[in-house]
Design a protein around this nucleic acid. Structure first.
Lengths: 215, 215
DNA sequence: AATTATTTTTAGTTTTGTCTAAATTTATTT
DNA sequence: AAATAAATTTAGACAAAACTAAAAATAATT
């Protein structure tokens, strides 16, 4: 598999988690910053290799084989992110791009040994679950802060958006995974929240609240 | 820089260490398992980018810029090899191919942090020196076992050939970097050696002796 | 239901890195 | 020094992965 093919599989996987009835050509093009015509070409190739099922104009879904390959790429990406943060002292907003490269290194023993070296982590630095060697994903109940109840104690367990900007905002506000969070007030007009995080009061926009997972 | 360009630079660097007056097209083709015509094409491109000086039929040498780039690739390769052996428990005969991929990951901070994580190692698992971030290489006196004196104590410090076959042979004979070695006899006809390694007597062919560095 | 808009696909190019086959240059022999 | 051999380069072609522009299919509107 080429790096390009792997990137397509990975994107199809991510999109299919929220659009399970088939991923559109344009959605893939958007995520990969490429043109729809390029996507069509690649979908044909992936279909020939039996990694996706593809019918003209009908969107695409992963085959069992494609799904497994996609999960292994995600596994590698997330394990490398753990390595970068835990062992090399990168901060959580710096690791995504490096992991985008590392995820394409081809060596099963490497990944299994890395996994062991890291102590078989279940989650990456952004709270996303890490598929095990068989592709099984440890699902955990979580919801968006925007859907949480007032005056109930939650723990911050993940981010939906893992862009540098958002992560640095969280750092600035000293919000990290594991932080405790309680909604004190919700403004009905724009859904701005007044929350208590690690004991401190803070006002949070709806955009923030829809990108923070809690439990 | 593409992976292919990096591989050419690396090969030119390695060959130029033993053939300093210009590296031939065929030598590069041989190392990269490609055709001479492909090499010519690439040399033109590298010359355009000012990474090599190239004149038709006259072989090629690295420019200062090309030399530095090549050293950085070698640095990455060797640091990753240390990581694989020291941290992930790979054996020294398993790491070359994986490092061939890892050496192309593009991130300066990654390499500097990896270097620090590993404790700024000076040598890789095969005894080859690791260039520092500035490209400076800690040169160390060493010679081939085939050129050593009789009845003098040496330490094994490196291998010239780092193929799986050779390294596994060394493992089988319990020869490792740091092993002490003394030549007891040299057969004049074929230069086979009788040596004492870590206290045990062993017969060693000239081919082995010309691939083992000692000090 | 017809028209318009959007999405997707097709057809034809481009770039990168490779190849083969032929031509050219350099090196080696006789 | 001429002839032969070896090495190198050129010319033209190909596959992968992208692109543009036009055509076709689907979706949304009036």
């Amino acid at each position: 598999m080429t790096i390009s093919e792997e990137n397509y599989l990975k994107v199809i996987y991510h999109v299919s988690l929220v659009a399970p009835k088939g991923v559109s050509t344009n959605a893939i093009a958007g995520m990969l910053d490429t043109k729809a015509s390029s996507v069509t070409d690649m979908l044909k190739k992936l279909a020939d290799k039996n990694l996706v099922s593809y019918q003209k104009y009908q969107g695409v879904t992963l085959t069992d084989e494609g799904l497994h390959k996609a999960k292994m790429i995600v596994r590698k990406h997330r394990l490398w992110e753990v390595f970068l943060v835990e062992k090399l002292q990168f901060s959580w907003d710096e690791v995504h791009e490096i992991a985008e490269e590392l995820e394409h290194i081809q060596s099963e023993p490497l990944i299994d040994k890395l996994d062991a070296f890291l102590g078989f982590p279940a989650f990456d630095p952004h709270g996303d679950p890490i598929p095990n060697a068989k592709g099984i994903i440890n699902k955990v109940e979580k919801e968006l802060l925007s859907e949480a109840n007032l005056n109930q104690m939650y723990t911050c367990v993940g981010v939906k958006d893992s862009s540098t900007e958002f992560l640095q905002y969280l750092d600035k506000q000293q919000i990290a995974l594991g932080s405790t969070i309680k909604i004190l007030e919700k403004e009905p007009f724009d859904e701005t929240l007044l929350v208590e995080i690690n004991g401190k009061k803070l006002t949070i926009s709806n955009k923030i609240a829809t990108n923070l997972y809690i439990r």
